[in-house]
């Protein structure tokens, strides 16, 4: 692994009385694509929300480029360059596509790179340019996912975290979204990807962690996990 961008150490997170994350440790290196796979309620989304500052951990350390961030507010963490594309896309429905993208750049102070980033996002997702004056809520599911990813890119993240980008999309669209993620990665963005669609995620990623009821059950290179019998049975639907 090259330089470590994100380090999570012995993270514990509680939702009311339930401990959703029970001592997770993971790391993401510069330029990597890392995926967290696992079933419903394994703690994947909780882990992402805790990294991005929406959820407070009970204990544990989260470091971004060596700096502890576990007690920072969400808007401060975005400013450091960590951006989460939330599960279910969470487009602002009554804002136009253009305004949604502007929201992505909200925390940025530099005006200069602004137009350049719009161009980049429109080049990746031409459909967003066509629909830029339309309210976000009127887009189809696939278009909304593209908008959510484009909005995330507008913050110029060093680390892009995606929560279930394939959720609720037709297989063809899932393929399309994953091609775009590959392209975004090729342009130099480090990616942490949470997925239930383990097959797609492991095919894209360099490394993977398998979460089971709030702990890490397995970690390995993605191709090794794809070949692992236990993973194949539990997450890839093979006998």
């Amino acid at each position: 692994m090259t330089e470590v961008v994100l380090e999570v150490e012995n993270l514990h997170v509680r939702y009311g009385g339930i401990e959703a994350v029970k001592g997770i440790s993971l790391a993401v290196g510069e330029g990597e694509i890392v995926t967290l796979i696992g079933g419903n309620g394994a703690g994947k989304t909780t882990t992402l929300k805790t990294i991005s500052g929406v959820k407070r951990p009970e204990s544990g350390q989260i470091r971004f480029r060596g700096q502890p961030i576990q007690s920072k507010a969400a808007h401060e963490i975005v400013a450091l360059g960590v951006c989460q594309v939330p599960e279910g896309r969470k487009i602002f429905p009554r804002m136009t596509v253009y305004e949604n993208l502007e929201m992505g750049a909200y925390g940025r102070r530099d005006g200069a790179g602004f137009d350049e980033d719009f161009e980049r996002v429109f080049a990746l997702f031409p459909v967003l340019k066509e629909r830029s004056e339309q309210p976000g809520g009127t887009l189809s599911g696939g278009e909304q996912q593209m908008l959510a990813i484009g909005r995330g890119l507008m913050s110029r993240p060093r680390l892009l975290m995606l929560d279930e980008p394939s959720l609720g999309l037709a297989p063809l669209l899932v393929e399309r979204i994953y091609e775009l993620l590959r392209e975004i990665h090729r342009q130099g963005t480090t990616i942490l990807l949470v997925e239930q669609n383990a097959h797609m995620a492991l095919n894209l990623a360099d490394r993977g962690y398998v979460l089971e009821s709030g702990t890490i059950a397995l970690e390995d290179r993605a191709d090794a996990l794809l070949g692992n019998d236990a993973v194949r049975r539990a997450y890839l639907g093979e006998e």
Binding site: V54, C83, P86, F92, M95, M103
Partner: peptide, 24 residues
């Protein structure tokens, strides 16, 4: 204005607004 967008974003979805860098 940008401030207005921040207000509208918090009104529509506070959690996502904070993920965009808005201080609620």
């Amino acid at each position: 204005t940008k401030l207005g967008r921040g207000i509208r974003a918090v009104a529509q979805d506070p959690e996502t607004a904070s993920l965009m860098g808005v201080s609620i």
